[in-house]
Amino acid sequence: MTATATSARQESHGLLSMIVELRAWIFLLLLVIFFEVWARSAYGQSFVINAYNLQAIGIFATAPLLLGLGQTFVIISAGIDLSVGFTMGLAAVVSAHAANMASGVLGLDLFTAMLFGLVAGIGVALIPGLVNGLLIAKLRVPPFIGTLGMYGVARGAAYLLAGGMTVPVSNAWYAWIGNGRVLGVPILVIITVIVVLLMHYLLSQTRFGQHTYAFGASRAAAVRSGINVSSLTIKLYVLSAVCAGLAGALYSGRFAAGAAQAGEPLLLDSIAAVVIGGASLFGGSGNIAGTVAGALVIATIQYGLVFINVEPFWQFVAVGVVIIISVLVDQSQRRLLGGRKDE
């Protein structure tokens, strides 16, 4: 093979990899164009140059995205965390109780009570995270099974603590965290952006992130390189649970009530966001930017279809189609790029 042919091929592969890498953002762009055209022709208004819509989609995307961020790490490590939804519910219930108790029983001021609630929500999530991690790392329970078990346990615990009710929180500061704005930007969005940056740093710039990729691609490689894979696994599931805990604690502020079922419908959305974002469920690939795009794709579809007033059931179809296309793109690039052994 001549040098020019090789480099031409490499270039075309480079372009292809770039498209594959950015596919979630490309989906998002196409969706936005679609809704923009529709909104302009049907309602004579812009879909995207519309601060109101952007805010609404931003808020809508925060909870599934927070779950998806932790899930990204877990999926890159070739695992899965099915318990995030009810870990979020557990955290929502506990943070609501804790904030109420802090102001009601301990007599703390509302701001401190709010912090107390947030910390308690995130703190309680450490338990399912740690148990998941120990089950998977030490007892070698497959992640699917281990976290499915935790799905049930966290759910039961959440319902028990809530007594089957939602737990109302009456705390102006807490409500402000959930619904307030700073310079017009919802606080929920600000918090989520900060967490996104933090997770991006963790995944792309630290040994922890690097080892997560290596572990997901080849357990043997990680083990023989002297990486402590048990401790890595435990950290991964704790991280995922903490993200869910934060999502739950914020839920209580936003809806002024903690509910055990707060995160139940979000589990699949979180996994979908990660997969649309380019991660493979076989592990080894994925990144935070992709998950952000994936969560925005899901939120935009669901919001946009209501905005342009399409029959609601199309939302499910549309999200499903995007997931399937995303996986197909992933597999075709594997076939094209993975088979190059003869250069």
Binding site: Y52, F60, P265, A299, F307
Partner: peptide, 13 residues
């Protein structure tokens, strides 16, 4: 969360 976003979308148009 979805119910909330739907209100925003319906109100948007």
């Amino acid at each position: 969360n979805k119910a909330a976003a739907q209100v925003q979308a319906v109100f948007g148009r």
